[in-house]
């Protein structure tokens, strides 16, 4: 008996749960979900009712209209060209932007602050928004697409690479500075060589994203296969839409396989 009492006193009470946090978080999530589902008319019933119509569409979209394929070759090639240009220009411009945004390499706080915020704002807008903007600025066509992908590439590479630059070993760069080297010499001989494999890897990754993105840029008139897709879609030529979607997927998969195998060998 005395042992039981003794034991009971050493047993700690279960600490009260943080109900405010639990109910708050659960409440937030359910409220958001309720508000969203109501706002967009999300209903499983509607989905079920529309399934027959969906089946008709799928039946109509198959088989793809293979005879249309020769007319896709030109736009597909243009799509790849847009991706290459965007990646090359964007890849070059991303170098200074990433360096200035790396805390350990930047020449001054103000530069770092402005550059970092510039980078974050670039990242907020999706690729197609840039495509719409450039299409409005320089006119419909592949040049608008290439410029949009340039901005998109800068956003992707500079963010990732500035993080790799912040992770480098500072011994060599500091030695270069100590030996009287300039800031540029420090970058060239001390900092950048260390993070070069990452740079190449991120650029290839950006190229993969760009190939993917370039396929749909044409939806807003920024060149490439997407422009064909947009005309066929708006006239409900779904057998052709299916052919375009399939060829886009195959091309994207091929490019990704190649790029991924190169990246794997790098790091």
């Amino acid at each position: 008996m005395s042992e039981a009492i003794d034991a009971a006193t050493t047993r700690p009470l279960r600490p009260a749960r943080n109900w405010v946090l639990i109910i708050g978080a659960l409440g937030m999530v359910s409220l958001m979900t309720w508000w969203s589902a109501r706002g967009i008319g999300f209903s499983i019933i509607e989905l079920a009712c529309n399934l027959p119509g969906g089946r008709r569409l799928l039946v109509e979209s198959w088989p793809p209209d293979w005879s249309f394929f020769p007319r896709l070759l030109g736009p597909l090639l243009e799509t790849l060209q847009i991706a290459v240009i965007g990646t090359v220009i964007g890849g070059i411009l991303a170098i200074p932007i990433a360096v200035l945004a790396a805390r350990n390499l930047t020449p001054g706080f103000l530069v770092w602050f402005v550059d970092r915020n510039f980078m974050n704002i670039l990242r907020t807008l999706p690729d197609l928004f840039w495509a719409m903007l450039f299409a409005a600025a320089v006119g419909f066509g592949p040049v608008a697409g290439a410029l949009a992908l340039t901005v998109f590439t800068i956003a992707v590479i500079s963010k990732l690479w500035s993080e790799s630059l912040e992770a480098i070993d500072m011994a060599v760069p500091e030695a270069v500075r100590a030996a009287g080297g300039s800031w540029l010499a420090m970058l060239q001989f001390g900092a950048i060589p260390q993070a070069l494999p990452h740079y190449v890897s991120y650029t290839l990754y950006a190229f993969e994203l760009n190939v993917r993105a370039s396929m749909i840029l044409g939806l807003v008139g920024a060149g490439g296969i997407g422009m064909v897709l947009e005309t066929q879609r708006s006239t409900f030529e779904y057998p052709r839409v299916t052919l375009i979607v399939l060829s886009v997927l195959v091309l994207v998969l091929i490019i990704e396989q190649i790029s991924e195998s190169i990246r794997r060998r790098l790091i």
Binding site: A7, T10, R11, P12, R14, P15
Partner: peptide, 15 residues
């Protein structure tokens, strides 16, 4: 479970 914890002397760490 509590008895088992007491037997190995760490009932105070239960939570």
């Amino acid at each position: 479970a509590f008895k088992a914890l007491e037997r190995v002397g760490i009932a105070d760490k239960a939570w």
